[in-house]
């Protein structure tokens, strides 16, 4: 098995995730796309862990899964807050940072 087959798989998932983040207006869908990106990173970690015969890759993948859980929790809370204030979760309308 080639190392690259996993890395390319991860890269493609990553790019699809980026595409989703950039094109989706719906806050929940943006969060899903971010999950895709995080998964791509995890595949990289595990693949390199297998290649190096090192447990660290898997451990860090686990850590990232935990961080992703935290991220989704907070992210959904924010989405809910936006929804409650604006009756919409269209992130295109959230432009309070406008300078």
């Amino acid at each position: 098995m080639w190392l690259n087959q996993f890395l390319f798989f991860a890269a493609i998932l990553f790019c699809i995730g980026v595409y989703g983040v950039l094109t989706r207006k719906n806050g929940v869908l943006v969060l899903m796309s971010i999950e895709l990106i995080l998964n791509a990173v995890n595949i990289n970690l595990v693949a390199f862990g297998a290649y190096n015969q090192d447990i660290a890759g898997q451990v860090f993948a686990l850590f990232i899964i935990a961080v992703a859980a935290a991220e989704v929790g907070v992210g959904l809370a924010i989405v809910l807050l936006i929804y409650r204030n604006r009756r919409s979760i269209n992130v295109a309308e959230a432009d309070l940072l406008k300078g």
């Binding site: 719906n26 806050g27 929940v28 899903m32 999950e35 959904l76 989405v79 809910l80 929804y83 979760i89």
Partner: peptide
């Protein structure tokens, strides 16, 4: 959780 989000925001 994401599905909950979908429902709570009345998608």
């Amino acid at each position: 959780l994401l599905l909950f989000g979908v429902m709570l925001t009345r998608a």
